[in-house]
Design a protein around this nucleic acid. Structure first.
Lengths: 187, 187
DNA sequence: ACCTGAACACCGTTCAAGT
DNA sequence: ACCTGAACACCGTTCAAGT
């Protein structure tokens, strides 16, 4: 609710998408928000608290975005076709990446509360993909859809990671096209 | 050549596979090697020098490993079938990941010299995959093989990242199986 | 309720000094 | 040739103090 708290979360999000959890630092963050480093601790007692709130907000927003996508494209095949766009946006925004993808790499150094939210992000995406896949193919059972959903989620995340490492969004597009050609994603 | 230098590189490798480039710190590294933090600078003037040497050694070793795999499995389909094992090993080693995959996420904070070596790592893998894919399928032209190679590299990297975020090597195996089922990887 | 300055132990880095 | 202690500006964190 607090405006400052929201400003901190917003600034931290773009920073974490570029520098990860370990790359977040209170002094730069505070400077961007217009307060002092020590003041952040009033809103988030520790960096772990900030990280957990940040990751939770991230998957909540992502869940809402996916639901909106589903609403905009009721046809399952169309929704699936648009799915990679969600990851593409981060790259288009100054070669940023999915915050939770970054945090997946940082797993060893993540506080337990942050780990849990990162897991929730993946769960949200896999659940959404599985649901859409199921409605696209009535024959597929739930386990098959979930397995396929995890493969898609992992593959798109990998494409984003590779494209980021070359700051080449066209590479992301090319890899997604390859996924479509091979049948991992609907054409 | 220097024994200390080699010990630094070896210790830095396992650390970077778990904590990334930003997670490397001279004091812990020095303690593991048995010298003082300041002494590392004799062998690597800056952290950027260490990072570049580390990433270069990493792709050189990886290239040798892939060539050995090719030698052990002259049949292209068998070599491709064994490829995911290279990434699986890192997860089996205390849930570590590909150092260059981690560094791909850290792209924004990487010195230019390190970025170049991370790119070289991807190039080595894509070139190897493209070569093996071409010999597996004589009809495929070079561009098609390279495109497919990039898709495989990205997808396997993504599977590793997702499995790491849950410390679940069985998830990696399951995703790889999905890739096989869909035809991204040979069965 | 919200913010701050000052202090703490930690980082990479430098450098003069050791052997 | 190789290593070290001490110092520097930087981190997250704490806390007493402000409004």
């Amino acid at each position: 609710m607090s405006e400052t708290r929201e400003a901190i979360l917003a600034a931290a999000r773009t920073r974490a998408q570029a520098h990860g959890y370990s790359g977040l630092n209170f002094r730069d963050l505070a400077a961007e928000v217009g307060i002092k480093s020590a003041s952040i601790h009033y809103h988030f007692p520790t960096k772990a608290d900030l990280g957990a709130a940040l990751a939770r907000r991230y998957w909540e927003d992502s869940a809402a975005e996916l639901e909106a996508l589903r609403g905009e494209f009721p046809d399952p095949a169309s929704a699936l076709r648009k799915y990679p766009e969600v990851f593409r946006k981060a790259l288009a925004n100054d070669n940023r990446m999915c915050m939770c993808g970054f945090m997946a790499a940082e797993y060893d150094d993540l506080p337990a509360a942050v780990k849990a939210e990162v897991k929730a992000f993946a769960d949200v995406h896999v659940a959404w993909l599985a649901k859409v896949l199921s409605s696209a193919d009535g024959r597929a059972d739930a386990d098959t859809a979930k397995e396929r959903a995890r493969a898609i989620f992992a593959a798109i995340g990998g494409a984003q990671l590779m494209a980021r490492s070359r700051a080449d969004i066209a590479l992301f597009d090319a890899i997604v096209e390859s996924y479509r050609r091979v049948g991992l994603l609907p054409g």
